[in-house]
Design a binder for these strands. Structure first.
Lengths: 211, 211
DNA sequence: CAAATTTTTGACCGATTGGACAAACGTTAG
DNA sequence: CTAACGTTTGTCCAATCGGTCAAAAATTTG
């Protein structure tokens, strides 16, 4: 029953309350940023008093830190799945689709991440130059292999990955702008399907080998 | 000498000091967000005392408001220039290039805007549903004309504009991540040229009519 | 039951925040 | 010089911030 990691063992109530707090904090942090959010706001969103919240998380930063740690794993999962086996075009297409689905289903996580990066990534910089760079370099090598094999057009794999990130996360991070511009009709639920269709056409036709 | 607009007339010193403050505020707001920035920070960055700053801008929000008003005009200028005369492919290419140059030359402005949108655009929502939507709809109509004429591939003009925004602004808003992933060598000055080459290939090959 | 432990709360603290204000300072015009 | 006006600053304030603490309340354990 002892944890394999350094995490302290916790009671069932502690587990549940911590989850409640993290859920509330995700809501608050993602819309106000770290410095723009207050412990009171999070406590109220979690339905408890401030001292009670601080009983489960000693400092405001601890909440944010826990949130970011969890986030990064789920956030990079789609890229990790990008595999050398299977048709390159299909792999890229499904990667784009998965990323867009995440923007649709987890917009708060996307905005939380965007907030952190926008402000210079003061809390997760080591992860960017370490784990993230390693992963991206690895996948860039895979993509380069596809290019050498003539499966997709030759281009810069790193900037290709950036472009996929940018276009998909845009629908989470800039959601209000997207909806404002599309208007009530086209900005409704169908906007993600429109986006999926467009992105598929943009990336795949653009990457099609010139055979 | 009377202003044509509602702006109050100001002395030469007021003009200069206000510019100084706005420059400092751009730096501070763009990296810390509105709520994350303090008047003291801005005052210090502008080299003056807090009460002195408040002599030129009565409230913190006034600074941000002035900044956003100016920003939006210069920010949308490239899209306004997108014109029906000239070759569609060339027009789109130069629009992408101009947007990328703005991400390179005015990253703080981009981040200021991103911060505002991320937090739900509480201060500029009317501009999004009004002026911005009107402009985008207008340009989308132009692009649609190009598609009907067979000059570019048929696709969704609105999402095409979103994709151009997303991919170019990514190099300003997510700059730290881009540099972290590219590393010291490829993340240097040349990264914008690499990005320009990649984006040109992505968009143009993807938009080339299938003739 | 009662004791031990965990959870919750109200009251409080020092630091920081946005902003007010009157007094001092500088500059210019008569 | 002096009066008027524009500029700058030190001081102060109420509100809010992150966080502490002791004590009450609830829960678990024996």
């Amino acid at each position: 029953m002892t944890d394999s990691t350094e995490a302290p063992r916790r009671t069932r109530i502690q587990q549940e309350k911590r989850e409640l707090i993290l859920e509330a904090a995700l809501e608050v942090f993602s819309t106000n940023g770290f410095r723009g959010s207050t412990i009171d706001q999070i406590a109220e969103a979690a339905g408890m008093s401030k001292p009670n919240l601080l009983y489960y998380f000693r400092r405001k930063e601890d909440i944010h830190e826990t949130l970011m740690e969890r986030l990064l794993e789920t956030w990079l999962a789609p890229l990790r799945e990008l595999d050398d086996i299977g048709d390159p075009m299909t792999e890229l297409r499904s990667y784009i689709r998965r990323k867009l689905e995440m923007a649709r289903d987890f917009p708060r996580e996307s905005r939380l991440f965007a907030n952190e990066i926008l402000q210079g990534a003061p809390r997760i910089m080591p992860l960017l130059t370490g784990e993230l760079k390693t992963l991206v370099d690895e996948k860039a090598a895979v993509i380069k292999g596809w290019m050498r094999a003539g499966k997709i057009a030759r281009t810069d794999p790193w900037h290709l990955i950036f472009a996929i990130w940018a276009t998909t996360q845009h629908y989470a991070d800039f959601d209000v702008q997207v909806r404002a511009v599309l208007g009530p009709n086209r900005g409704g639920e169908g906007r993600f399907e429109d986006a999926a269709r467009f992105l598929e056409q943009l990336f795949l036709d653009g990457l099609k080998p010139k055979g």
